[in-house]
Write a protein that binds this DNA or RNA. Structure first.
Lengths: 209, 209
DNA sequence: GTCTATATCCAGATAGAC
DNA sequence: GTCTATCTGGATATAGAC
C-alpha cells in the first residue's frame, strides 16, 4: 500500500509549510526547505515547478484549515456566549502550537490581497451568513442591535493580537517565557468575561450601532 | 544655512522608511530605495554602509516615534477613561496615515526579538511604570483589581489588530474601501464604550485578577 | 523519481574617476 | 559627495545522466 499520497510530496509540503510560516515568501530559501525535507533541491521543482507555486499551495492549505476551524464554531448551534467561550479556548490552544500561522497569512495578504479571492468561494464557509447568525443571536439572546462585524473583529483582535505581537510585548515589558505562558492561560478566562461584560453594557444603552 | 542636517541623508532615510515599512527587510530592494530618493544606489552605502545598518536606523527611528506616542498618553494626568478615549482616537488617526508601521515592527521583531533590548532603555518611556499607573487608576477610580497588562493588551489589540488585518478582513467579508472607512470611523466610538462596559462589569464580580 | 552539474539572474557591495 | 562600472555571492531554476 502507498504511503499517504506520495511520501516525498508530503514531506516537501510539511517542510515548506514550516519554513514559509516562519520566514515568509521572501525570507524562505528553497535550500532550507529541501534540507528540512531531507531531499534534493531539484525535487522541489519537479513536484511544484517553482517557489511561487509551492508557496501558493502552502498558503491555500493553511488558510483553508484555519478558516474551517475559525468559522465552524460560529455556524454551530450553541448560544452566542458559549460560542465565544469555545472560540477563545480552542483558538488559544491551536495558536500555541502554530504561533506563526496568523502572521504568515496577514503578511501574505498584505503583499497580495488578491490571493484570497479564489479560495473563499471554494470553502464551505460563508462569511456573510456567519455575520447574519451573530447578528440574530445578539438580538434574540441578548436584545442587542449591534454591527456583528464589530463584535467578531473585537473577538478576533483579543485572541489573535496578543499572540502575533508576542515578541513586541515580551520585549517592551521584559516578560519571561513563564510569565507569558501564565498571561495566555489567564486570557482563556479573562477574554470571554471581558466580552460578555461589554455586551451586557450594550443592553442598557442601545444607542450604539 | 544647511538644509535640515544633510539633505541627501534625509532623503535616503525617508525613502528607506517608506520601502522598508511596506516590504520589510527581505522584500525591500536597495535599488528601489535609491530610485525613490532620486539618488545613486552607491550613495546608500556611502551614508549607511550596508542594508542591515540602514534598516536598523529606520527601525529604531520608527519604534521610538511610536513608543513615545503610545506611551505618552498613559503617563499623563487624565482619568483612565479619558486616556482610553484619547488613545483610541489618536491611534486610529495616526495609523490611517501609517498603516504599515505596526506590522513592520512586529515582523522585524519576529525575525530578531533582540532588536529592542538596547532601544527601550534609551527611551524616556518606562513600561513598568506605565503598568503601575494603570493599575492604580483601575483601583482608585473604578475599584477594580485587575492585571493592568491584560487591560493594556486588550486596548492595543482592539485598536491595532483591525488595521493590521485589514486585507484579511476586507477579503473575507468582501468589504469595499468605503465600507472599511466607515468601519474604522465607527470604532472610534465603539471601542472606548466596549472597554468601559467591560470594566464596569468587573466592578461587580471582582474574582478575576 | 532522484541525483549532479550547471545555467541564469539579480541583489548587495566595492573601486575608482570626477 | 556623487557618479559609472564592475565584482561577487547566492538563490532560483534547468539539463541531463542514472
Amino acid at each position: 500500500m502507498e504511503n499517504i499520497t506520495h511520501n516525498t510530496e508530503n514531506r516537501i509540503l510539511e517542510a515548506a509549510r514550516d519554513v514559509f510560516h516562519r520566514k515568509g515568501f521572501n525570507g524562505a530559501r528553497m535550500q532550507e526547505i529541501a534540507n528540512l525535507a531531507n531531499i534534493n533541491k531539484s525535487l522541489l521543482h519537479y513536484y511544484f515547478r517553482n517557489k511561487e507555486l509551492l508557496f501558493e499551495k502552502v498558503f491555500n492549505d493553511t488558510f483553508s484549515q484555519l478558516a474551517s476551524k475559525m468559522g465552524g464554531i460560529f455556524m454551530s448551534e450553541m448560544t452566542l456566549i458559549s460560542k465565544i467561550e469555545t472560540f477563545v479556548e480552542l483558538y488559544l490552544i491551536f495558536i500555541s502550537e502554530h504561533s506563526y500561522v496568523m502572521q504568515f497569512i496577514i503578511n501574505a495578504l498584505q503583499d497580495r490581497p488578491e490571493r484570497l479571492r479564489d479560495i473563499i468561494t471554494n470553502q464551505n464557509i460563508n462569511p456573510e451568513l456567519l455575520l447574519e447568525k451573530i447578528h440574530k443571536q445578539l438580538k434574540n439572546e441578548m436584545g442587542i442591535d449591534m454591527d456583528p462585524l464589530q463584535l467578531y473583529v473585537n473577538l478576533l483582535a483579543l485572541v489573535i493580537f496578543p499572540v502575533v505581537a508576542k515578541p513586541l510585548l515580551q520585549s517592551i515589558f521584559s516578560l519571561s517565557d513563564e510569565r507569558m505562558a501564565v498571561f495566555y492561560e489567564e486570557r482563556k478566562k479573562i477574554v470571554p468575561v471581558f466580552i460578555e461584560n461589554a455586551l451586557k453594557g450594550y443592553e442598557k444603552d442601545k444607542k450604539l450601532g
